[in-house]
Simulated assay, not measured.
Amino acid sequence: MFRPSRSALAATALSMAAGAFAMPVAAYAADTTTSLSATQMVAELKTVATTSTTAGASGWNVNLAATVTLGDAITVSGAYVYDPLHKAISSRIRVANRLFESYAVGGRGLYQNLADPDMRAAVRMMGRPEVKYAFATEPSLNVDTLVNADGPAPSVVLTEDVSYAGTKTVHDDGTTDYAYHTADDEAYTIHVGTDGSLATIAVADSFMTETLTYSYGPQVVTVPAASTTISMTVLERGIRYLHMSQVVKGVGQEGASRVLRKADGHIVKVASLRKIVRAEVKADNKIMGMKMIKVKNVSHGVRLSATNPWTHKSISYTVKASGRKVVVGGRATTAALGSGFPAAVPDQAPLTVPSSWLDARLLAASVK
């Protein structure tokens, strides 16, 4: 979900010092600043959370702007939209030049853009280059629960991990600022509008400045068109076939490794090899949710094969007993060589929608 950790909930107070909030110096002559204990800060922000929740009853959105310094300066920007009337959420975040986009619709399911290279390569392999999103059906999805658990809702960001002593500054224009430092030396500034609702949260530390800007009222979330969407189940199947050779060979090597451990230095029995490798194939096909790999007995062992249903290309590897050794596709295998299915397919981004509003530093590090 696109949710800020506490270190990602806000950005610099510089935006407040910039033109958007600039006023003649004399206009702030009546500003009043008081000190707050941690208990008082919690109570004050709880009141702001309640007012903000009321203001956002028909919807709200948040814009994110951040700069993260990890060697080079990396720009992070995003927008989160909550439409309670239509039970929908959208989340877009751009880290440098990489876009993460996701949607959630109550009672329907989750959408995610194909941010991972393997996802895009899979749809091209399928002959569907127009596809830009994956959809996972989830009829029980409750958007309100999702927002309160994982979104940057005012009711969440103003009540979690805010027990710090700080200050309250009331401006003569009717707005209020709350400021405090965390144990990690992150400087927070929470700006509250004249109506008592959350306007911005800002945090700054030695590595990052980040700002979340809130607005309230009815929202519109437009989900991806069916013509540009693919089932996540089908997409995952495509990714498996994209790496078909690695998958089949990996299963063969893992089976061979198990055979050798079973033999424990003795002559490898063909019957034992066939039984163990077949069990390995069955287990991996079950994990993949499809009978991708087929097994056939051959002299001294078995042949593992698979055929890509989109490209119609086939791949096969033999696993054969050879004295005290097991040969996979012409190469002798040691007991420690097995790679197994989990290592056979490159990592892919999980389908979590909306994308978590993570610490901007983590987002920047993930694409650096």
Rank of each mutant, 00 (worst) to 15 (best):
M1C: 10
S5Q: 12
A10R: 07
A11V: 12
A11Q: 09
T12G: 12
A30P: 08
T39D: 11
A43Q: 14
T51P: 00
S52Y: 05
T53F: 01
L64G: 09
A73R: 08
T75F: 03
S77K: 13
L85P: 02
H86W: 02
H86G: 03
S91N: 13
G109L: 04
L114C: 10
M119K: 13
A122N: 04
R124F: 02
G127Y: 09
R128S: 05
F135N: 01
A136T: 15
T137E: 08
P139G: 11
L141N: 03
V157S: 03
T159E: 06
V170T: 13
T175M: 07
Y178W: 07
A179W: 01
D184W: 06
V192C: 04
D195L: 07
A204K: 07
S206K: 09
F207K: 14
T211A: 08
Y214V: 10
V221D: 00
G238L: 03
H243M: 02
V247D: 01
G250P: 03
A256H: 02
R258G: 11
R258K: 14
V259D: 01
K262P: 04
A263E: 04
G265P: 02
S272D: 15
K275M: 05
E280C: 13
K286R: 11
I287A: 13
M292D: 09
N297Y: 04
I315P: 01
I315L: 06
Y317T: 08
T318Y: 05
V328W: 00
V328K: 00
R331Y: 06
T333Y: 09
A336C: 05
F341M: 13
A343P: 05
P350Y: 03
P354E: 06
K368G: 12
